[in-house]
């Protein structure tokens, strides 16, 4: 009984740690996307995580990043001594699983599959897109609050911190935007601009509208892909049966793949 409670507590911590792993293409936590199918604590120090992407063909390099992201987050939990990460049903699954469980660093594992090249350029491209998407949410929110273009582009980090966001997405993205802004070194001090471009340039007030046109394109693409991925993940193992009421979707491997429990209910 006591061990059950401990196990439940640790698994709760485990799921929370997995929330920090994002799909680089979508800038969404893999837990929200429903990619994580099993996260289990065994004997209070071993962790096993299984995940599955929406299709067999999802980008292998991002699969590597997510697998190593899971390993890093799980290993950061003080009580974890052993971790096994498994990517299921993927065209590059064997390579990813062998690499992530080998104990070698990401760079070393990854480099062996692409003649020593690294992922820096691709990672940077998608960090820039994530930044743009988060920034757009902030800029639109401030416009909606009645701030002028001149006020927005000259807002400092300290000023940004004082602003209260309304709305679920705005509240969610505010700390995420701030984290990326600081992490990338685009703002360091309270008097630094809160809204530079990804290249570190200030935005002119009269350029803000054009800037937003570009950000919008990035956001629409990411949201569309996110919707597609969620949909594909939800139907990947379903088939159609034509009954008297017409076609219905049934899960043909129910029981074989563990159901995705809503981990929020575990808290």
């Amino acid at each position: 009984m006591l061990t059950d409670i401990i196990k439940a507590d640790l698994e709760c911590e485990l799921w929370e740690s997995l929330e920090a792993v994002t799909d680089p293409e979508l800038d969404e936590p893999i837990t929200d996307m429903g990619f994580v199918e099993r996260a289990e604590v065994i004997g209070s120090k071993r962790v096993e995580v299984e995940f599955r992407l929406p299709t067999y063909w999802c980008s292998p390099n991002f699969a590597f990043l997510m697998a190593f992201g899971i390993r890093a987050e799980v290993c950061a939990l003080p009580w974890v001594q052993e971790v096994q990460v498994t990517l299921n049903d993927h065209c590059f699954g064997d390579e990813v699983n062998e690499g992530v469980n080998s104990g070698k660093p990401f760079e070393e594992v990854f480099a062996q599959y692409c003649d020593g090249a690294n992922l820096a350029e691709v990672v940077d491209t998608f960090r820039a897109k994530a930044f743009d998407r988060r920034q757009e949410v902030m800029l639109l929110a401030l416009q909606a609050q009645g701030m002028t273009e001149a006020e927005i582009v000259s807002l400092t980090l300290a000023g940004f911190d004082r602003i209260t966001m309304h709305g679920e997405e705005e509240e969610r993205q505010k700390p995420r935007y701030r984290d990326l802004l600081l992490d990338q070194g685009l703002a360091e001090n309270p008097e630094d601009l809160a809204f530079p471009t990804w290249e570190g340039q200030a935005i002119e007030a009269q350029e803000l509208a054009t800037h937003l046109v570009r950000l919008k394109g990035t956001r629409i693409n990411m949201e569309f892909n996110g919707a597609l991925c969620r949909g594909l993940a939800s139907t990947r193992y379903k088939e159609v049966e034509i009954g008297p009421e017409g076609p219905t979707l049934v899960d043909f491997i129910a029981g074989r793949v563990p159901p995705r429990e809503d981990h929020a209910t575990r808290r």
């Binding site: 299709t55 139907t235 017409g246």
Partner: peptide
């Protein structure tokens, strides 16, 4: 994978076995 696209985005009455 194609079939998942079909089942994910088709209206229910247009689904194929």
């Amino acid at each position: 994978c194609f079939y998942a696209y079909h089942t994910n985005l088709s209206p229910q009455e247009e689904l194929w076995e």
